[in-house]
């Protein structure tokens, strides 16, 4: 029995650490990527994945089914709202006249 709980604990920790790594790299990407769209990509994708992994890790730790259900609901909410808000943001940026940097526009590409 203790082997199984140990395994679940290990899995949960792995998920938590991976989730934190995703959130962190999303933050770094938000700061360092060159244009609006790639920054938004970093923030949106890594946030959705990071939050999902962290919630999964927490689900493995939950000791009552009610906690599990609540975490599942939060996960569902995040997976609905986070991509939607990224989409709305990108659309607003396009309407506002922002265009993604492509190919030769990339900073550093021309200098090389």
């Amino acid at each position: 029995m203790s082997g199984l709980t140990g395994l679940i604990d290990l899995l949960s920790w792995l998920a938590l650490v991976a989730g934190s790594f995703c959130a962190l790299s999303g933050g770094v990407g938000l700061l360092r990527f060159p244009d609006f769209f790639s920054r938004m990509h970093a923030a949106g994708v890594m946030d959705t994945l990071g939050a999902g992994l962290i919630l999964f890790g927490l689900m493995l730790q939950s000791d009552h089914w009610l906690v599990l259900v609540k975490l599942l609901l939060i996960l569902k909410l995040i997976w609905l709202t986070s991509p939607t808000s990224s989409h709305a943001l990108a659309k607003a940026a396009i309407r506002g006249g922002a265009r993604p940097l492509l190919g030769d526009d990339m900073p550093g590409r021309g200098k090389r």
């Binding site: 939607t84 989409h87 709305a88 659309k91």
Partner: peptide
Amino acid sequence: HQKILRVVSKLL
């Protein structure tokens, strides 16, 4: 014009 927003908010 925001189709996705409309659908998701209807769900939410």
